[in-house]
Design a protein around this nucleic acid. Structure first.
Length: 355
DNA sequence: AACCCGGGGTT
DNA sequence: AACCCAGGGTT
């Protein structure tokens, strides 16, 4: 029995029933695949329904503006996915006459679609024989064949891509690709894999050599860095001052409160002494520090955020470009990052005492 | 080849 | 705290 056949037999009995598996529409598959990049199925599922509801066909997606797309994406992370999706939708209109492409060579041209996603769309929609290589595939193959080459080095990437393509059942590309990913997610899990009930017990090199827990091998990246953000809540009548972030840092194009960043943790006295502070506020600006420090962990940054209320909006010296007052009742229409909207959730009455 | 880009679950 | 998730883009 071949690896592929054994895998598909397992899949027929244990595979998950997921909404995007009941279609061959490349647009719907694309939607699901972008959402699921580095994102667990349970986390992405509500967003899949939300987007399909808002944009049933790619034309509607292309007609939307970026603000609306980002607002729908709010809270999911890796926001470049949303911006790239929007560009891709427009590209489907301009370069494919609104007909969503299915061939690997075509879909990989779309922004936000790399080798994995192109293989997924091409195989799921028209059974093009392209093997997917995602985190599940790296894990399953490294264990089954006992390969200790790091999966994130250039040599390893090529090795696993070639091996995956060799193993693919070219007559059943869609089913095979779904099968190996479900097998990785449900049976050959990262931690505590279910080797005791595994259909590959007799063939798995890692199990035979008792090195399952050591595979796959992955090179470590840089340690995360600490950042200190000081947010200023500045209200004027029924409005609040919001700042739109730039494009070269985390949370690109999303809204937050006006903010000063410092290299280390500083108290309010040190904050007042900064040049940045003097630019925007008078030295004696009435500030009220709120609650405790909010620690927000990203995969590569630890952000420590403090929030201050500026009691007198008229004390603001300079309104930086990108800082604008927004009506409190319209605040929900702005796409904000997680740190800000969790703060807003917890401090509703503080921000808007009328509620 | 190294680094950047989120939020959340599991161990 | 470390690791992972249906990865992709930039430098």
């Amino acid at each position: 029995m071949s690896f592929a056949s054994n895998l598909m037999i397992w899949y027929r009995e244990h595979g998950r029933d997921l909404p995007w598996r009941n279609t061959q529409d490349p647009y719907v598959i694309w939607l699901s695949e972008i959402i699921l990049q580095q994102t667990r199925v349970e986390q992405g599922l509500p967003y899949f329904h939300r987007f399909l509801d808002a944009f049933p066909i790619v034309t509607k997606f292309a007609e939307a503006d970026e603000e609306e797309v980002l607002r729908l994406w709010q809270g999911l992370g890796y926001y470049s996915r949303a911006r790239n999706m929007h560009k891709a939708a427009k590209m489907v209109i301009s370069e494919f006459a609104g007909d969503f492409p299915t061939r690997y060579a075509d879909v990989i041209r779309l922004p936000g679609v790399g080798e994995y996603t192109a293989a997924a769309i091409a195989s799921f929609s028209v059974n093009e024989p392209k093997a997917v290589v995602d985190g599940n595939v790296y894990r399953v193959l490294s264990r089954y064949f006992g390969i200790s080459e790091p999966i994130n080095g250039s040599k390893g990437k090529k090795m696993f891509a070639a091996l995956a393509q060799e193993l693919l059942d070219v007559e059943h590309a869609a089913t095979y690709n779904q099968a190996i990913m479900d097998f990785g997610a449900l049976q050959c899990k990262p931690k505590k894999p279910l080797c005791g009930t595994c259909t590959f017990q007799l063939d798995c090199v890692a199990l035979k050599e008792d090195i399952v827990d050591n595979l796959p091998v992955k090179l470590k990246g840089k340690a995360s860095r600490d950042r200190y953000f000081h947010y200023f809540i500045i209200r004027k009548d029924d409005s609040i001052l919001m700042s739109k972030r730039g494009t070269s840092d985390v949370w690109a194009n999303l809204y937050e409160f006006p903010m000063i960043e410092t290299e280390r943790d500083v108290d309010m006295e040190e904050l007042r002494a900064l040049n940045d502070f003097a630019t925007y506020f008078p030295p004696n600006a009435p500030l009220l520090e709120l609650g405790k420090v909010a620690k927000h962990i990203l995969s590569h940054q630890n952000i420590y955020a403090k929030f201050y209320i500026l009691d007198d909006a008229d004390a603001l010296r300079l309104k930086k470009s990108g800082w604008n007052y927004h009506l409190l009742e319209k605040i929900d229409t702005l796409a904000k990052h997680k740190l800000i909207f969790s703060f807003l959730e917890k401090n509703k009455q503080l921000i808007n005492p009328k509620i």
